[in-house]
Design a protein around this nucleic acid. Structure first.
Length: 425
RNA sequence: GGCCCUGUAGUCUAUCGGUUAGGACGCGACCCUUUCAAGGUCGAGAGACGGGUUCGACUCCCGUCAGGGCUACCA
C-alpha cells in the first residue's frame, strides 16, 4: 500500500511553529517511507478566513524545503486540494447519509446521528496504544453547516478517503474527535486510515501553541535571522529523538532516522534558547560562501558580497542569528559614530603611538601584530587598554571582531583615517 | 463538571525491570584570551505523590495530584 500523508492547514492565520511542526512530521514520514506528502487547504470556515495566509502557507513550506508532491499550487488541477471548491462533493455525501437515515436536517444544517451504544476505539500509532471512547459521550454533530460548507469532520473524512490518505498524522487536539470520524468512515463503508496523534506543542505558558497566545509565525523567525536548517532541526527535536541520539541533523538525516515509534507523547514546550544555540551551530556549519550569501540576502543585497565574505571568518563564531551580523560588523560598511567620552585618559597616547608605526607598517596581519605588540612593550602600555583604544577608534564599540584582523580587512587608508579622526576629537 | 491525553532537572530528551538515571540547551566555575565569542575541563540540577506486583521498579498495575486537549453550524 502506498503511503500518503497530508498536512491540512486552515488559512485562518499565518503558519506558526505548531502547525508547521506537524507538517514536518508528515513530511519526514512520507519521505522515509517513499510515500507522498500532500498539501490540502481546509478553508471551510468562511468567517475566520484570512486570504493572505494562503500565500504565507506556500511561502513557509517552500522556505523550509518541505516540498509537497501534490497540492493546490502545483499541477494543473487546483480544486482537489482546496475544500471551498469542493462544496458540492461534501453536499452529496451529506445527502447520502440523510437518505440512509444516518443524518438529519436541523435548522438548515445537517447533523450526523451518532450511535450511543458501545464503544469506539482505535490503535494510535503514536505510542502504539488503543484509545477508546464510550459512544454515549458522542453527541449528534453537524457535518454540513447552514451556509452549505462542510464542517472539519465531514470534509476531512471525505477528502482523506478520496485522496487515499494512508496515515492521518496530526495534532493531539483531534483525539477526541476521532470517534466522530470513525463513525463517518463506517457510515460510508470506507476503510479507516491509520491514526497518528502527535503531542501538543506548548508555548512557555504551557498552553497549546496558537496565534492567540502569541505564537510567532515561521516567517517571523526567518525575519529575525534564523536559518531554515536550524528551525527544522529544532522542530524535529520536539517530541522526537533520533535513535542515534544526534542533536544536529540535516533534513536528510532526519528522514533516514525517522520512525513513529520514537515519538514521545508528552507535550514539549518551545524553548527559544535552544533554537538560538542551534542557529549558532548551523551558522558555523555553513561554508563561508554559503553564509556570505545568506547574510547578503538577509541584508537585502545592500552590501558588497566580497567584503561580507572577507569578514565571515571573523564573525561566524560570534553571531547566533543573521540579524547579529550588522551589530558586530557594521563598522566595515559604515563610518562608526565615535565620541570623546568613550575613550579613557590614556587613549590619546595609545592612538598617537599606534599611528606612528602603522604608517610605516606593511599591511599584513603578522607585521601589524608585531609592530603593535612592540609599542605596547616599549611604552609599558597595558595590552588590553591599548587594543581597546584602537577598537573604539575604529569601530565605536567595545565588542567587536578581533581588531587587528579587522584592520587588515578595513585597509590602511580607512584605518589611519579613523584613528586620526579619533585623535582629533 | 464530563471525556481523553500526558507526567525523568528551568527546557528538549535517553532509559524498552537490574545503570553511580545518560546526553543537549540554559546556568556557575576554571582554562584559553587584546574585547566579545567559539572551544576545552569541571560542577550544580530530575524519576509528582501513595499503594501494589516483583528477588529487584523511573520502567508494569491501581489510586491521588498536576498540566494539557476536547466538550461550537472553529479548525
Amino acid at each position: 500500500m502506498e503511503i500518503r500523508v497530508r498536512t491540512a492547514p486552515s488559512p485562518t492565520g499565518i503558519p506558526h511553529i505548531g502547525n508547521t511542526w506537524s507538517a514536518l512530521f508528515n513530511f519526514l514520514f512520507a519521505r522515509k517511507n517513499k510515500g507522498k506528502f500532500i498539501l490540502r487547504l481546509e478553508d471551510t470556515d468562511r468567517e475566520r478566513l484570512v486570504p493572505e495566509s494562503v500565500a504565507k502557507i506556500y511561502e513557509t513550506l517552500h522556505w523550509l524545503g518541505l516540498d509537497y508532491d501534490e497540492g493546490p499550487d502545483i499541477g494543473g488541477s487546483f480544486a482537489p486540494y482546496i475544500q471551498s471548491e469542493r462544496k458540492e462533493i461534501y453536499r452529496q455525501y451529506a445527502d447520502e447519509l440523510v437518505k440512509k437515515g444516518i443524518a438529519y436536517e436541523d435548522n438548515g444544517a445537517i447533523r450526523f446521528k451518532t450511535n450511543k451504544e458501545g464503544k469506539t476505539g482505535w490503535v494510535d500509532l503514536a505510542g502504539n496504544k488503543t484509545i477508546e471512547f464510550d459512544n454515549s459521550t458522542q453527541e449528534d454533530f453537524v457535518i454540513l453547516k447552514s451556509d452549505g460548507f462542510p464542517t472539519y469532520h465531514l470534509a476531512n473524512v471525505v477528502d482523506d478517503h478520496l485522496m487515499k490518505i494512508s496515515h492521518v498524522i496530526r495534532g493531539g487536539e483531534w483525539i477526541s474527535s476521532v470517534p466522530k470520524h470513525i463513525m463517518l468512515y463506517q457510515a460510508f463503508g470506507w476503510e479507516l486510515p491509520q491514526f497518528v496523534h502527535l503531542p501538543l506543542l506548548l508555548g512557555v505558558d504551557k498552553s497549546k501553541l496558537s496565534k492567540r497566545h502569541g505564537a510567532k509565525s515561521v516567517l517571523e523567525f526567518r525575519q529575525e535571522g534564523y536559518l531554515r536548517e536550524a528551525l527544522l532541526n529544532f522542530m524535529a527535536l520536539l517530541g522526537w529523538s533520533p535513535p542515534s541520539g544526534r542533536e544536529i541533523l540535516t533534513l536528510e538525516e532526519m528522514i533516514n532516522e525517522f520512525d513513529l515509534k520514537d515519538i514521545n507523547l508528552a507535550s514539549p514546550v518551545f524553548d527559544v534558547k535552544k533554537l538560538e544555540w542551534l542557529n549558532g551551530e548551523w551558522i558555523r556549519k555553513l561554508t563561508i560562501e554559503n553564509l556570505q550569501l545568506r547574510i547578503w540576502e538577509y541584508l537585502d543585497k545592500k552590501y558588497p558580497q566580497e567584503l561580507i565574505e572577507k569578514t565571515i571568518p571573523l564573525v561566524r563564531e560570534r553571531i547566533k542569528k543573521l540579524s547579529d551580523y550588522m551589530n558586530l560588523a557594521g563598522f566595515f560598511f559604515e563610518e562608526p559614530k565615535i565620541e570623546k567620552g568613550q575613550f579613557g585618559n590614556l587613549a590619546l597616547g595609545h592612538l598617537k603611538e599606534a599611528l606612528k608605526v602603522m604608517e610605516e607598517s606593511e599591511w599584513q596581519l603578522d607585521k601589524l601584530q608585531d609592530f603593535l605588540l612592540k609599542i605596547v612593550e616599549k611604552n609599558k602600555f597595558k595590552t588590553g587598554d591599548f587594543f581597546m583604544s584602537l577598537r573604539l577608534a575604529l569601530t565605536g564599540q567595545r565588542v567587536t571582531p578581533p581588531i587587528v584582523e579587522s584592520m587588515v580587512i578595513l585597509g590602511k587608508e580607512k584605518t589611519l583615517a579613523r584613528i586620526n579622526r579619533a585623535v582629533n576629537l
